[in-house]
Write a protein that binds this DNA or RNA. Structure first.
Lengths: 154, 154
DNA sequence: GAAAATTACCCACAGCTACCCACAATTCTA
DNA sequence: TAGAATTGTGGGTAGCTGTGGGTAATTTTC
């Protein structure tokens, strides 16, 4: 049973099929609140992975973007990059969403994919890329983690 | 349906035909609210691209423009630019709108065109020009980008 | 007013997508 | 533990989408 709605935790291994579809873990789907209408938004992550949002969360981002003035070149560029790679995908009867070829290329996805719950969003990784990124992150300055620790109680 | 109306996301590649027609992605058309009457307004963008608005949204913008102080030179030139080149185009049975030769020239459009959903409007680009503009934008103040990202992206 | 040019509207069609069903493997239940 | 239900994966197909081109209607030009 899930605790709070639109919250995702845990790591799963799933396969991307020939049509670019990938299953969203049943537990994640059950965590979705009704007003999401079985729909996610997929977009580029800041790492080499795909981010998956419940559409309700994404709509908040959209609203904020709508409020940015298009008179500023920086704003326009920011909006363009934030929205350009986003695609709205309701999941089918089997619980799968459709990824765009562009996103599959970006995340270097092949058949096997790791799906990670990241609290308010979901990440989809190529296992190799995830492993490499993890290794890189170990080399980061540990004090960064300490800064974060002051903000978030784990 | 959850998808919010008159809201556009994603990047698509379409072709401008010999008659100056270009397809509006089916997903964008489906997002239009009924009172748009299958009609868009096309005009010059502030970048080297064409802006496409649902007519309902455009009407709001027009009233806002009227309320802007007519004293400021920037406002005057902006209004002149935005309104002067605006054209109303309903889309045909195949979902295509007609672009004016003037706009095609302004956006340096050739056969291949990139269509980008920018939340409340749509942009039409020549791929090369888009690529160049992207490169230019990287030189803009990165800290502003980060500020925006931190505020808006969850 | 007639010819030419332009525009608006219609049809055709290949390729693709959304939707459906099938089935094996796993989990749940009584 | 056996049966039932759910979950993850694969594949088929009807209908839609994007693109090109044709023709009648309208406008422009001489």
């Amino acid at each position: 049973m899930t605790i709070s709605k639109n919250t995702f935790t845990g790591e799963y291994s799933y396969s991307l099929d020939a049509k670019g579809r990938i299953n969203i873990p049943a537990k994640f789907r059950q965590s979705l609140s009704k007003n999401n209408d079985n729909t996610f938004v997929v977009t580029r992550g800041l790492d080499t992975c795909i981010w998956v949002y419940p559409i309700i969360i994404w709509q908040k981002i959209e609203t904020e973007l709508k409020n940015l003035s298009a008179l500023s070149a920086i704003n326009r560029s920011f909006i363009r990059n934030a929205v350009r790679y986003a695609a709205i995908t309701p999941y089918d009867k089997q619980g799968r969403i459709l990824l765009t070829p562009s996103l599959i290329r970006y995340a270097e996805l092949e058949k096997e994919a790791i799906i990670i719950g990241m609290v308010n969003k979901i990440e989809i990784w190529n296992p190799k890329t995830l492993y490499e990124t993890d290794k890189q992150n170990l080399k980061l300055d540990p004090s960064t983690f300490e800064d974060l620790a002051e903000k978030i109680i784990l």
